[in-house]
């Protein structure tokens, strides 16, 4: 058991997909921060579904690590309409020249479908396609339910998932044991899909025991009060 080193993703485009509320944004922010140690890094807020909590919220936090956050022009305003940043092409051009880019996509197939807009350009960059899951989210608690969501997302965005991320948590009340007991779902998903588990992410004080790598992430979700 050891800590995941983001160097394996350096210089790549990483697409982060998953069910609503599984923690895609916290995982994306942590990956962007880790990648920033190696190379020019972008975090693209590509959530066109739910404007309440989004990667753009972590802009200030990530600026400390020189991560370039590219978000819809009107993110976090009252005209937060579904839109794509005009600077997206800059990211894709830079990524073609070796920069790292994490693309935080909106939840479920509804969020994934908008990837179609840049599908061909992304495909040419041979992206790593991550599927984040949490065993404590309704509608993805069992292997069967999770597989259904994965298949819907793959169909909607036209990309095959290349690796899994276990981000099972119950928010601030998460105990190390909660993460450890999600290992059975992770194992079953890996076995059924034949996909590797990239890491098990955690925010708990103690590192949970997990098969494969663990990855410490932070909660950068916007505090409402």
């Amino acid at each position: 058991m050891d800590e995941f080193d983001a160097i394996s993703l350096s210089g790549k485009v990483v697409i982060v997909l998953g069910h609503f509320g599984c923690g895609k944004t916290n995982v994306s922010v942590a990956l962007a921060k880790a990648l920033s140690h190696y190379n020019t890094t972008y975090l693209v807020d590509y959530d066109n579904v739910n404007p309440y909590f989004r990667a753009a919220d972590a802009k200030e936090y990530l600026s400390r690590y020189n991560v370039r956050v590219v978000a819809p022009e009107f993110a976090n305003t009252n005209v937060d309409i579904p839109a794509v940043s005009p600077y997206l092409n800059t990211v894709l051009l830079d990524a073609a020249n070796g920069a790292s880019a994490v693309i935080d996509v909106g939840g479920d197939m509804l969020g994934a479908v908008s990837l179609g807009y840049i599908h061909d350009k992304l495909k040419a960059l041979d992206p790593v396609v991550l599927f984040v899951f949490s065993a404590y989210r309704p509608l993805t608690e069992t292997c069967e339910q999770t597989l259904a969501v994965m298949s819907e997302i793959e169909q909607a965005c036209g990309f095959k998932i290349t690796a899994l991320v276990n981000n099972s948590n119950v928010g601030s009340l998460t105990e190390k044991e909660d993460i450890e007991s999600s290992a059975s779902l992770a194992k079953e998903l890996c076995r059924t899909t034949g996909l590797p588990l990239l890491f098990t992410s955690y925010m708990t004080k103690e590192t949970p025991a997990a098969e494969g790598k663990t990855f410490r992430i932070e909660n950068t979700t916007r505090k409402l009060f």
Partner: peptide, 15 residues
Amino acid sequence: MSKVLIKGNEAVAEA
């Protein structure tokens, strides 16, 4: 489904 992390909106629907 004893312990889940859930949005208020989803909690209303499930309940």
